[in-house]
Design a protein around this nucleic acid. Sequence first.
DNA 1: AAGTATGCGTTATGAAATAACATAACTGGA
DNA 2: TCCAGTTATGTTATTTCATAACGCATACTT
Lengths: 161, 161
Amino acid sequence: MGLDCHHTESAHPGLEGLALADAVAAAATKCERTRERLTPPRRRVLELLLEADAPMKAYDLIAAYGQDGEPAKPPTVYRALDFLERLGFAHRIESLNAYVPCRMEGTSHRAAFLICECCGAAQEFEPDFAPQFAAAEAAGYAVRTVTLEARGLCPACKVES
Amino acid sequence: MGLDCHHTESAHPGLEGLALADAVAAAATKCERTRERLTPPRRRVLELLLEADAPMKAYDLIAAYGQDGEPAKPPTVYRALDFLERLGFAHRIESLNAYVPCRMEGTSHRAAFLICECCGAAQEFEPDFAPQFAAAEAAGYAVRTVTLEARGLCPACKVES
DNA sequence: AAGTATGCGTTATGAAATAACATAACTGGA
DNA sequence: TCCAGTTATGTTATTTCATAACGCATACTT
């Protein structure tokens, strides 16, 4: 999927310049409030995710890490991703083995994505998990996190296919 | 997660003997109806999934494949898994990199799981994706498949923890 | 200042999945 | 029944994804 799609529009073009700086600053502020540390590797990985137009693979992040072209070592990036996920700044998309910055406001432990199988775009949306929660409670489960990944075609790709 | 859980009960104990044979026979019948072929490797992997008490990793299947202890080659198992997923006989649980036999009747392209972070059990449940579908349609997406994975504690583990 | 916890750098390894190509087995016509 | 097309398997090797383990550095906390 998502191989050689010619639909070049991106639902979420990456951030640049001021917008990028603002987004990083906002994350830094949030960290300060909770006494978390947005250290250089964490900040760098967050930047890379925010700059990207599409979900990034861990090894893409590793390759892009150094401004000078030097790659990072894998644990550097995986640790940063763990942190960013823990704080709700990023999500892992399981079915893609890829990562995106969080586009939603409140960082509840929930994430829902519409993934285009043609162009590879992944759009986060606000999930309403009420029926699923109800089913889980009925089964006696105590739910902590929920992730949902819907696969199909985005509006642009739907038209042309 | 699911490391050294002492809660030995399994929500879905594996099948044995007649129950196992019946389940495989049922799959064979379904295949005949749609002119699909339940070949020996496919049948063997399905058996292994049905026998298991919990989600199985691909390399567990590879190791357990031969009755004589001989492992399978990875492509053998991955191809069988592709087939079983395509026909709705098995599901991949993305957040575990593991596979389970389908426990639900109708094989729609949907799957929802309650995954216990303590004992590793994964219970399939019937999803009601109405609100998510509505959200997707509203965004212009044409949804093909949906998977949902809820993580938390199963009833048994909830009590003791 | 000492002790503890957290994070980073580094090397190496482990785990999960697929590419590529050759061979074999079904399927459906002529 | 033979041939051609398709589908499935066997096999080797490789790629992709992720973590273990260790030592050092930095930051909180008493």
